[in-house]
């Protein structure tokens, strides 16, 4: 029982991590708490659903289409909205993402309706046996995806020119600009990355929570909480936070009853923010907001 709950919690947590990492990346490069992050995912899930249902794409092509679309969406958000107000204080930036939240909710509701839609299951639902615990194949696949994306991010930040430039912008945008790093392009890249992560977060979680304009609202909150675990700065911190949330809420749901499942994440926010306001992990350099 414990192992089972633990592993499926880990699987859900790894999906939260995708949102959490996107929140952190955008925040540390642009000071923006992106409230539309969940809606990027929601749009991504709808796009994939439409590609599968109406255009008879197979799952992987639909996923790819969704990724491309969401990257475009992220870039569009930066170019059309966020760049115009990039110098404003963070409340203005935050409120602008609220505006995008309205728009994306409205767009999804207008084109696809407010009702909840099932997302076709792509994997054999028969559970498999891993280390004595019985878990569904979907969980294993989701974890594999999340791990693969994590690896891609690690390589990107560690070894590619753009990734290193992105870290430089995080640490000190002014010096980075003086060193010849194209800060604007890096910011654009940041939003593109947010879209990239959003597409995976949306499409992978869609079979579990179904597709509707509101599907990502709770996931987004959990992503925020996870991001706070890393002090809104550290990517590993955010990932660990996301996994912790997934595991804790699943254990609470399993042992205490399903009512406690949602409450757990919120109880964790309150406890975390009350006692370790700037994250669980010691962050040496943090930009004041």
């Amino acid at each position: 029982m414990f192992g089972q709950l633990f592993i499926s919690g880990l699987a859900t947590g790894s999906l939260y991590a995708l949102t959490a990492v996107a929140v952190v990346v955008v925040f540390r490069n642009t000071r923006t708490i992106n409230l539309a992050q969940g809606d990027f995912s929601m749009i991504g899930a709808f796009v994939a659903l439409v590609l599968i249902k109406s255009f008879a794409f197979n799952y992987y092509f639909a996923l790819a289409g969704s990724v491309v679309f969401c990257i475009g969406l992220g870039i569009l958000a930066e170019r059309v909205v966020m760049r115009q107000i990039a110098d404003s204080d963070w409340l203005t930036l935050f409120t602008a993402t609220l505006g995008m939240y309205y728009i994306l909710h409205g767009v999804a509701g207008h084109f696809w309706g407010r009702d909840t839609k099932a997302f076709p299951l792509t994997f054999d639902p028969t559970p498999i046996n891993v280390f004595g615990g019985i878990i569904s194949q979907g969980h294993v696949v989701n974890m594999a995806w999340a791990a693969a994306i994590g690896l891609v991010l690690f390589i990107f930040f560690k070894y590619t020119k753009q990734g290193i430039a992105m870290r430089a912008v995080t640490d000190d945008p002014e010096t980075a600009a003086l060193m010849g790093i194209p800060v604007r392009f890096i910011v654009l890249l940041t939003w593109g990355m947010a879209g990239f992560l959003a597409a995976f977060a949306g499409v992978l979680i869609a079979p579990i929570i179904y597709v509707s304009p509101e599907m990502m609202d709770e996931v987004l909150i959990k992503g925020y909480v996870a991001a706070v675990f890393g002090g809104l700065y550290s990517i590993p911190g955010a990932i660990i936070g996301a996994l912790l949330i997934g595991i804790c809420e699943n254990l609470a749901g399993g042992y205490l009853g399903s009512h406690f499942k949602t409450v757990t994440a919120f109880a964790m926010i309150v406890l975390l923010l009350a006692f370790r306001p700037h994250g669980l992990f010691g962050i040496q350099k943090r930009r004041e907001v």
Partner: peptide
Amino acid sequence: VFLRLSGAFMAIGTLGFAFFVGT
């Protein structure tokens, strides 16, 4: 509870509060 929070952290905390009341 949120005595030590400010800025973006406060925004996230209060958002969590709204969800908490909802639950």
